[in-house]
């Protein structure tokens, strides 16, 4: 429409332009987050108190809290939790260190590339818990077989993430380093490692949750102490309050791990 054309219809009703870009933009609301917990727990307690939820199927929140408290004062919780944490830490660290080393080699060296990718692709889909019986034959029923299961489960996603991260380091930064004649070790340490770090750290989230799953599975197959053993024993005795208490501890454990990883992120990736 040209300005030069006389505007003959100026008295036409002007319609307001309707705002159309609504929705698709959820916002965080911490109050609602906490409130949702309270609501679920209150409803659950109400259901139990009124007998709507059978005590045998699902103990009330109060009963779970009592069971948890008993575990704490008797010291049983610390024995179980200590055993679990130790397995988790040792297994995760072993798997992560090995995975980082192999991941870097696969990411950087032609000779390691194809064999590495082929082996990892072939072994990654195996549910690692299926190998626990084999590890028990190799290492005995004690701790080493559990370490090995967790480490093995952690190893593969770490390798995949690490070499993905190394691959994603901008080529131009590596070339920049080379063009300034930086020695190879400096290029690795100062360019490739920090460049791959964001991907590696997000891989830690995956590998830590895999580690927890394998930890519990391994403890259910054969352990005297450990959260997995606690849950299994409680189930066999129909002590659902203790069983749920164990599950709550696991949930808290997962939250702690993810909080720690969040701190690690902020500390190492502050530049982002």
């Amino acid at each position: 429409m040209s300005r030069d054309v006389a505007n003959s219809s100026s008295e036409n009703a002007d319609n307001k332009v309707r705002f159309r870009a609504t929705g698709f933009n959820p916002k965080a609301n911490p109050v609602a987050a906490w409130a949702s917990f309270v609501v679920v727990i209150v409803l659950w307690q109400l259901g139990s108190s009124t007998g709507f939820i059978s005590d045998l199927a699902m103990p009330s929140p109060v009963a779970v809290a009592e069971a948890l408290w008993k575990l704490i004062v008797s010291g049983d919780l610390w024995r179980h939790l200590g055993a679990s944490l130790q397995r988790l830490a040792v297994g995760w660290i072993l798997g992560t260190v090995a995975g980082l080393v192999v991941g870097f080699m696969v990411g950087m060296f032609t000779w390691a590339r194809s064999p590495g990718v082929a082996l990892v692709s072939a072994l990654f889909p195996i549910p690692k818990i299926a190998l626990l019986p084999l590890f028990i034959i190799w290492f005995g029923i004690g701790e080493p077989s559990k370490f090995a299961t967790i480490a093995f489960g952690v190893f593969f996603p770490t390798v995949i993430n690490t070499f993905g991260g190394v691959d994603n380091v901008a080529r131009n930064l590596i070339r920049m380093g080379q063009s300034f004649d930086m020695p190879m070790w400096s290029v690795i340490r100062k360019i490739i490692l920090p460049g791959a770090l964001p991907t590696i750290l997000s891989g830690f989230r995956i590998s830590s949750s895999i580690a927890i799953i394998l930890l519990i599975a391994a403890e259910m197959i054969g352990a005297q102490y450990g959260i997995g053993a606690l849950i299994l024993a409680a189930g066999q005795l129909y002590q659902t309050d203790q069983l749920i208490a164990g599950v709550v501890v696991l949930s808290l454990l997962g939250l702690c791990v993810s909080w720690l990883l969040g701190r690690l992120d902020r500390w190492l990736l502050g530049w982002r």
Partner: peptide, 26 residues
């Protein structure tokens, strides 16, 4: 023989001084 790059090729995790220091450290 020293390059200046079209896309700058700066390390995002280093400060301005750190990026310059990078090529002197070795």
């Amino acid at each position: 023989l020293t390059y200046v790059f079209q896309d700058f090729a700066l390390l995002p995790w280093r400060t301005v001084a750190g990026n310059i220091s990078l090529v002197l450290e070795d």
